[in-house]
Design a protein around this nucleic acid. Sequence first.
DNA 1: CCGTATCCGATAGGATACTG
DNA 2: CAGTATCCTATCGGATACGG
Lengths: 131, 131
Amino acid sequence: MREPPAVTNDICFCPLFGLLDVIAKKWALLIIAILGNEGEKGFNDLKRELGCISPKPLSDTLKNLERIGLVNKKIMETSPPTVKYSLTSDGRVLREHLIPMLVWISERGGQEIPGCPIRTGIHQERINQPG
Amino acid sequence: MREPPAVTNDICFCPLFGLLDVIAKKWALLIIAILGNEGEKGFNDLKRELGCISPKPLSDTLKNLERIGLVNKKIMETSPPTVKYSLTSDGRVLREHLIPMLVWISERGGQEIPGCPIRTGIHQERINQPG
DNA sequence: CCGTATCCGATAGGATACTG
DNA sequence: CAGTATCCTATCGGATACGG
């Protein structure tokens, strides 16, 4: 990115970029939305609910979300070890802001993709339950 | 993207992707936020306010936002012609959902970038005025 | 079950120069 | 002023195979 504006009077959005660089991506937003449902989820739970994501972008996104403190990863010492992802408290706050936006987007209607068992919109009850 | 899930019981997020593919990017979100301030803006107004964006991504993003009906482009037949970008009514609705999220993000604090005249947060009055 | 490794294609996005 | 053109790099993200 080019040097930020030098003049002090200018507004600079850099304070937003630490988070925006991670969450302003479709998978990240959906993961935050989904993680608030029904408590903790495993890697493959998420993969299944997202429907069409490859393991690599899911893994990458989860690591980034964990790094910036929105997602918590818990490893239980069972055998085999059980892994559970959940939102941190910050993640839950962010989600509260995010959900109305996603609901509106889904209600406005999106792209129809051939072969997709499309819904008229996201089922609000699926993304609006307390985490 | 891989084929969406075939089983009807599965949730599919495809309805979200038409919009998400465009707006789930840092520049798009900031442009929607800024365009709601102080009425219409020209290309270089936006460029200046965004602070560190190259003309190509700005041009690309504006075209995408216009294509999906969130941004309106008006060309006035002055000489030289005057171009003004503004939010459509849908764009304004989306922005209403977006702003609280951006404000929270900026208040939580982001990345400190060397050379950036960083603020403790976005000035809420700058992104919260009626469009 | 939970990923990592690898490879690959598509695209976001930056720098710069230039045009009407 | 409002972009377009060109080139380039980085990264997003998919597919598949594999390992703990």
